[in-house]
Simulated scan of single mutants.
Amino acid sequence: MADAADQISEIYRRHGLAWESGRSRSLFEKVWLDRFQELLPCGGAVLDLGCGSADPLARYFIERGFAVTGIDTSLPLLGLARERFPKHRWFLSDMRELSLPERFDGILAWNSFFHLRCSDQQRMFEVFRRHAVPGAALMFTSGPAHGEAIGTLQGEPLFHASLDGDEYRALLDAHGFDVLAHVREDPECNSHTVWLARNRPG
């Protein structure tokens, strides 16, 4: 599966617009987005890792008065984000290499973080830590158990990977985050496995 893991960015560059056109706007994620929002200060700064076209997740926060900075490797999707929300910031960047000179009140990696190899996911917790203010919220989706899986996008193999729950908990703890909520294959969120954590204050 190594080759498929290397192709994630290129697949979303080629097929991002097709993926975007079929992306649900039902906001089945709303229960979790609401929980994440409750941890943020009014008008706070949100970092969206793998922001795509900014609709519907970044839109949710923008419409509630938050300042969103989005990161993605797909220029076609970033073009849509910039067109839709020109007052917010959208950067072409690989989340694994991210090193912004600022920190955020909330960090979101929804249906993006799980496209990374397990070894890259392990290293991402330092990226989360560097970009989180004390008390920042962190929310990401993972697989339900340790392993790798291949889906498809426009007929091409689409890589996914996950650590197991104990390892995610250990990594969060080691990097200063406390788990607030975790649901494996949440039936109220289209069977997504969701993690919500908070950076320890001080």
Score class of each variant (00 low, 15 high):
15 H>W: 11
16 G>Q: 09
16 G>P: 05
17 L>H: 15
17 L>P: 08
18 A>T: 14
18 A>G: 07
22 G>A: 05
24 S>R: 14
24 S>Y: 10
25 R>S: 07
25 R>W: 07
26 S>R: 10
26 S>L: 08
28 F>V: 15
29 E>V: 01
29 E>H: 12
31 V>Y: 04
32 W>M: 11
32 W>V: 10
34 D>G: 15
36 F>H: 04
36 F>Y: 07
37 Q>A: 15
38 E>F: 05
39 L>K: 10
39 L>I: 06
39 L>V: 06
41 P>Y: 00
42 C>H: 13
45 A>I: 08
46 V>A: 00
46 V>K: 00
50 G>I: 03
50 G>E: 13
51 C>W: 02
52 G>Y: 01
53 S>W: 01
53 S>R: 01
54 A>K: 01
58 A>I: 01
62 I>N: 04
63 E>S: 13
63 E>W: 02
63 E>K: 04
64 R>E: 13
64 R>S: 12
66 F>E: 10
66 F>I: 00
67 A>M: 06
67 A>T: 09
69 T>N: 01
70 G>R: 00
70 G>S: 04
71 I>R: 01
71 I>K: 00
72 D>Q: 08
72 D>H: 01
73 T>N: 06
73 T>V: 11
74 S>Q: 05
75 L>E: 14
75 L>F: 05
76 P>S: 13
77 L>S: 07
77 L>Q: 07
78 L>I: 07
79 G>E: 12
79 G>D: 14
79 G>N: 15
82 R>G: 09
82 R>L: 05
83 E>I: 06
84 R>N: 13
85 F>G: 02
85 F>Q: 03
85 F>D: 13
86 P>S: 06
87 K>M: 15
88 H>K: 01
89 R>E: 12
89 R>N: 10
90 W>E: 07
90 W>S: 04
91 F>T: 08
91 F>A: 05
93 S>H: 14
94 D>M: 04
94 D>H: 02
95 M>E: 06
95 M>G: 03
96 R>S: 15
99 S>E: 14
102 E>C: 14
104 F>C: 08
105 D>Q: 03
106 G>E: 03
106 G>S: 09
106 G>H: 07
106 G>V: 00
107 I>L: 10
108 L>Q: 06
108 L>S: 09
109 A>G: 06
109 A>T: 10
109 A>F: 01
111 N>G: 11
114 F>D: 15
115 H>Y: 10
117 R>F: 11
117 R>G: 06
117 R>Q: 14
120 D>H: 08
120 D>C: 03
120 D>T: 06
121 Q>T: 12
121 Q>F: 01
125 F>L: 02
125 F>C: 04
126 E>D: 14
127 V>E: 05
128 F>W: 11
128 F>M: 13
128 F>K: 04
132 A>Y: 00
132 A>S: 13
133 V>R: 12
133 V>Y: 05
134 P>A: 11
135 G>F: 02
135 G>H: 02
137 A>Y: 02
138 L>R: 00
138 L>M: 11
139 M>I: 09
141 T>R: 02
142 S>H: 07
143 G>D: 13
144 P>D: 11
145 A>P: 05
145 A>W: 08
145 A>L: 10
146 H>G: 10
146 H>N: 09
147 G>P: 05
148 E>F: 02
148 E>W: 06
148 E>M: 08
150 I>L: 14
150 I>D: 10
150 I>A: 03
150 I>W: 03
152 T>Y: 14
152 T>W: 07
154 Q>K: 12
154 Q>N: 15
155 G>S: 07
155 G>M: 09
156 E>I: 01
